[in-house]
């Protein structure tokens, strides 16, 4: 005759799993890593000649060691930077002192005018990281907003809601991330 095994007492099982649960809660962190993504340019070859870019196609953004901003030679507030960058890159009035627009054929969008404008960002070694990120953030915001506007106009949805990789690629080409960082310089000292 088979012996019947007595039932296991599982009352403490819950306590043990609670203990594990608290352990994992304490040792882990839920912080999702997020931030501003950038692509660094490859190192400059030694014999590189300076590339000629027309003056009207460059938006010079300078940040000094006291975290002050100078855009096209004029001091401005960080809150005005986004609008200035948007105006520069879109050139809605086709002004002659703003960047040239180049007619390009992009698959998915057809003929579209792409700005030749480049934002040149230069900061001092003494600039605080906080300010640098704020400037990068505002410039990114300008590009993102322009992409959004184009995406809404062409496809009817915001850029971040686009699903088709072809469309995303097309918009990214029509409004490229044209931020160039100057080779570092030490002007204001540390």
């Amino acid at each position: 005759m088979l012996k019947r095994t007595p039932e296991l007492n599982t009352a403490s099982m819950a306590d043990i799993s609670f203990l594990l649960l608290t352990f994992f809660l304490l040792t882990s962190s839920i912080d999702t890593d997020q931030g501003i993504t950038r692509k660094l340019p490859p190192p400059q070859p030694k014999d590189q000649k300076a590339i000629d870019i027309k003056d009207r196609n460059v938006l010079k953004v300078l940040v000094n060691k006291s975290d002050n901003l100078l855009v096209q030679g004029k001091p401005i507030n960080i809150r005005e930077l986004k609008e200035a960058a948007k105006l520069f890159l879109a050139n809605p009035g086709r002004r002659v002192d703003y960047p040239e627009m180049e007619e390009k054929t992009i698959p998915g969008l057809g003929k579209i005018s792409v700005s030749k404008g480049v934002i040149s960002l230069k900061n001092d070694r003494g600039t605080s990281y906080e300010t640098y990120i704020q400037v990068q953030n505002e410039l990114t915001a300008a590009i993102n907003e322009l992409r959004n506007e184009l995406s809404k106009q062409k496809f009817g949805v915001a850029f971040k809601d686009l699903k088709n990789p072809g469309y995303i690629d097309a918009i990214s080409k029509a409004v490229p991330v044209s931020i160039s960082e100057a080779e570092p310089e030490n002007i204001g000292g540390n």
Binding site: G35, I36, R38, L40, P41, P42, P43, I133
Partner: peptide
């Protein structure tokens, strides 16, 4: 990082 060829970077920030 440029010299090492690690071009993709991310400045970690809070939202």
């Amino acid at each position: 990082l440029r010299k090492a060829g690690a071009y993709k970077i991310n400045y970690s920030t809070h939202k």
